[in-house]
Simulated assay, not measured.
Amino acid sequence: MIDFRYHLVSIVAIFLALAVGIILGTTLLQDPALDLAKRTSDELTSANNGLRADLDALRGRQAGNDAFITARTPQMVAAELAGQRVLLVETPGSSTSVREAAQQVLGEAGAKVSGRVTLTEKFLDPAGKGVLDGLVNQLKPANMVFPATATSYDRAATLLAAALVTNDPAQAGTANTATAGVLDAFETGGLLNVEDNPAERATLAVMFAPEKPFEGETAETLAEALVSVADGFDAAGGGAVLAGTAANVALPGDLIGAVRDESDVSKRVSTVDTADMPVGRVVMVYALREQLAGHAGQYGIGKGATAALPVAVTPSPTPSAQSGS
């Protein structure tokens, strides 16, 4: 008769055999896979370290370039905008630091900032178009006629631009009596905020795009509304530049991209998508100067940019007293 100890020893032996088999099988099967995984991990680690080193080197180069441009900016922009008055227009979500840095460079270029207008979210609220239309109809001069296809934002931009900018240098620095009360009414209605005295009209306008594209179902509508505003300021003054940061992919709510996608508007309004960089602020000054000459361009490194900066225009040489003799 087989006793209990025999059964116990047999069971233990079976389990030991199974355990040894599992260990041996697992080791034999996994060693190549483990080796491959280790080699792959080592390669990825090495590549990652290389990319980090490249990134650190690029950051160092950019920091050096930024330091050089910052130091040379006063010489690079000196007198480029002498005698010009510039209006600053901030949009919902635009960067205060970008605007402040741009304002400093405009001063170094010889321009005087007439003032600052900050459009509010209420200005862009599609549900408030009735209020916007009502104010425009109430405040517009009798001789201000809008095209039949003009949107609410086209009309509002035309009225605001008439109150804030002029293409007549002789009128720069003076208020437009035909639009008296426009700024106060828009500010009282919560549609915008005013800093300094922008009613003393400027000759040029710089609009600052939101740091992030608009999102949601109304993203494209909001961007198009601000395209109308930029175009309105360009039409009423000596030119307009939209400044912001680069977008590498097309997004419906990206304001700079929306201007660049509007073929007619992009022929009039310039964009600079490197305004967060020292070089972009220099380009902004050059783009404003180009606007005064009746030209526009799309500058920077983002999608839709056609060049890094405007092409310098060399003045025609003045004929000497002896020429032609």
Rank of each mutant, 00 (worst) to 15 (best):
M1R: 04
D3E: 07
H7V: 10
L8F: 14
V9M: 08
S10T: 15
V12E: 02
I14V: 13
V20Y: 15
G21F: 13
G21Q: 10
L24M: 15
T26F: 11
Q30S: 15
D31L: 12
P32N: 12
D35E: 10
L36V: 13
T40A: 14
T40F: 08
A47T: 12
A47H: 14
A47C: 03
R52A: 06
R52V: 02
D54C: 06
L55G: 03
L55Q: 15
G60D: 12
Q62I: 07
A63K: 14
N65C: 01
A67P: 02
A71M: 12
T73G: 07
P74N: 11
M76P: 04
A82M: 12
G83E: 01
Q84Y: 07
L87R: 03
L87G: 03
L88T: 01
P92T: 03
R99W: 00
E100P: 03
A102F: 05
Q103I: 00
L106A: 09
E108C: 04
A109G: 08
A109D: 02
G110T: 06
G110S: 07
T120N: 03
E121A: 06
F123Y: 09
F123S: 01
L124G: 08
D125V: 11
A127Q: 10
G128W: 02
K129M: 08
K129L: 04
K129I: 01
D133K: 04
V136S: 05
Q138I: 00
K140C: 09
F146H: 06
T151K: 00
S152D: 10
D154Q: 02
A157N: 01
T158L: 04
L160F: 06
A161H: 04
V165W: 10
V165L: 11
V165S: 06
P169E: 06
A170I: 09
G173T: 06
T177A: 15
A178W: 09
T179Q: 03
A180C: 05
A180H: 11
F186Y: 06
L192R: 12
L192C: 14
V194C: 05
N197P: 00
A199V: 09
E200I: 01
K212Y: 07
E215N: 06
A219I: 06
A219N: 07
E220K: 12
E224C: 05
V227M: 04
V229S: 07
G237Q: 04
G244N: 01
T245K: 01
A247S: 13
V249M: 08
I256P: 01
R260Q: 11
D261M: 08
D264C: 04
V265R: 01
T271C: 02
T274Q: 10
T274L: 10
M277E: 11
M277G: 07
G280I: 00
M284K: 10
V285G: 08
Q291W: 09
H295S: 15
Y299V: 01
I301A: 02
G302H: 00
G302M: 00
K303C: 05
A305E: 05
A305N: 02
L309E: 11
V313K: 12
S316Y: 14
P317T: 10
S323F: 13
